[in-house]
Design a protein around this nucleic acid. Structure first.
Lengths: 159, 159
DNA sequence: CGATAACTGGTCAATCTGTCCAGCGAATCC
DNA sequence: GGATTCGCTGGACAGATTGACCAGTTATCG
């Protein structure tokens, strides 16, 4: 398998990650390649889906939602996951949700303003009757903030 | 508590999320406010930390890492979490890690190229001797992709 | 060896950015 | 009440960047 990305792609992505506000022109200067090259590379990365977007990254904590928790939901067998996912999507505090191995379960990441508020959010979640049980793990500290940069480097080296 | 963000902020963030490539000028036209206003709002959002950055969002799946899993690590009491986190940070496939409630545990999100590759990643993780045990949950499907936009709206309405 | 693809280095007009400014309305403070 | 501060408006300006081209030069691959 040909590498999805090569060395220049990695450098470009790293550069953009470090200083997102620099434009294509400045990036080409830093990388010492022609502007058109940077432009083409960027287009390709976006076209391939490697770069999903450049949207603003929002920090829930700065919005007052300082408590993060992971909730495992036990789903009633009948009915399936979709209606449950639809219900979860109506709750802003539910940031993401995955179905996971092990009998009809769902793992979701939620945030709340406080531990007391967390109870409210959980109540909102379990209000849906397709959900049999919820078990919550509160995140105490972020040991490793979300990152994908090292992965790009590895993908390039590996091929 | 005064809202961290107001209605205009929300519209601005939503607009940028929907079409990140539009500049400040175009955004001001869409929102029907002066350019300086948009600029000032953006600066404030970034200064407050509500917007953490505009870096490229990378898709591990597009890089060949199509398997996602959540691993709970049981940590040996002595030694603490930091050395473990340091170890995890050396593994590109570990995308994030949180300490969670319940006796010295760590929850991390990892990716791999395949289920077989997942085994390799887990082996790499548990190679560290501060880790007593690892239990893995494989993500089958992404029911709700990571999102924060609804939260901004709620934060604005709430105050 | 020839052909396709990628990169270079350059041009062009149009646009956007950063940075000023004065005026205005609303909220706040004395 | 009156003065001050703050945020927004609408406009100006030079300088920089963008998107779109182009011809010429490697690289790579069958």
């Amino acid at each position: 398998m040909t590498p999805t990305v090569d060395e220049l792609d990695v450098k470009l992505v790293e550069l953009l990650a470090a200083e997102p506000r620099i434009g294509v022109l400045e990036a080409s200067r830093r990388l010492k390649v022609a502007r058109g090259t940077v432009q083409a590379r960027l287009d390709r990365l976006v076209a391939r889906g490697v770069i999903k977007g450049f949207g603003p990254e929002l920090d829930p904590a700065a919005l007052g939602y300082g408590v993060t928790a992971f909730v495992t939901l036990e789903i009633r067998q009948s009915g399936g996951h979709d209606p449950v996912a639809a219900h979860l999507s109506t709750i802003p505090e539910v940031l993401e949700a995955y179905t996971i191995t092990g009998g009809g379960d769902l793992l979701c990441r939620i945030v709340a303003r406080s531990n007391a508020d967390l109870q409210r959010v959980i109540d909102e979640i379990v209000a849906y009757d397709g959900i049999v049980r919820a078990s919550t793990l509160i995140a105490l500290a972020e040991q490793l903030p979300y990152r994908t940069l090292p992965l790009v480097g590895k993908a390039a080296r590996h091929g």
